[in-house]
């Protein structure tokens, strides 16, 4: 078979015998070449058979997929929250290793709970500063530099994981469209 014939027959196969899809020159070749003409006719007939192979649509599939989509979305949200919870634990562990969290006074320091508003906020900031300075001093005195460095690393890793998890969670959160 000549190269031209093979190339044209490949095209006829691709377009299922539709000679309108060929160039003028190719179409003329098909008209004059018995082999290519036979392939064109055969491909048209094959095309008619293949046009019937799709099964009828099943209308129930769409509904079933839709309800599964909702379940999958809920599951994703829960799964996406797991690393957030895990990373909070890691960060908490790092903070504890660094000298402990301020205990019962924590709530009292929050300006939300105070009737004194901004004054209270300023005071609490000062308190926090004192807490951290004392905690840092005590930690440096008690812990070896190696342990301290490890604790800082764990804390940083925790913060990093929180940031990544928060981004992931935002992608599947129901409020992602807002803003």
């Amino acid at each position: 078979m000549a190269t031209t014939c093979e190339a044209i027959q490949e095209l006829l196969t691709e377009h299922l015998g539709e000679t309108e899809r060929l160039s003028d020159e190719e179409r003329r070749h098909v008209e004059l070449c018995p082999q290519c003409c036979e392939v064109a006719a055969g491909e048209s007939a094959l095309g008619l058979i293949f046009a019937r192979v799709l099964p009828p649509a099943d209308p129930t599939v769409e509904g079933r997929v839709r309800s599964a989509m909702k379940t999958a979305r809920r599951r994703r949200r829960v799964l996406a929250l797991l690393p957030v919870a895990a990373s909070l634990l890691v960060a908490l562990l790092g903070a504890v290793m660094l000298g402990g969290l301020p205990g019962g006074s924590l709530l009292a320091l929050l300006p939300v709970w105070s009737s004194q508003g901004w004054v209270s906020l300023a005071a609490s900031m000062a308190d926090w500063n004192a807490v951290f300075t004392t905690a840092a001093g005590a930690t440096t005195a008690l812990l070896s530099p190696g342990v301290l460095a490890a604790a800082i690393l764990v804390s940083l890793a925790g913060i990093g994981v929180i940031a990544i998890a928060a981004r992931r969670w935002r992608q599947v959160s129901p409020w992602r469209d807002i803003g």
Binding site: L54, P55, V61
Partner: peptide, 14 residues
């Protein structure tokens, strides 16, 4: 996404 389901359902099933 449901439009994609409708578009490909018969073809993928076939």
């Amino acid at each position: 996404f449901t439009t994609l389901v409708r578009r490909y359902q018969r073809r993928l099933t076939a």
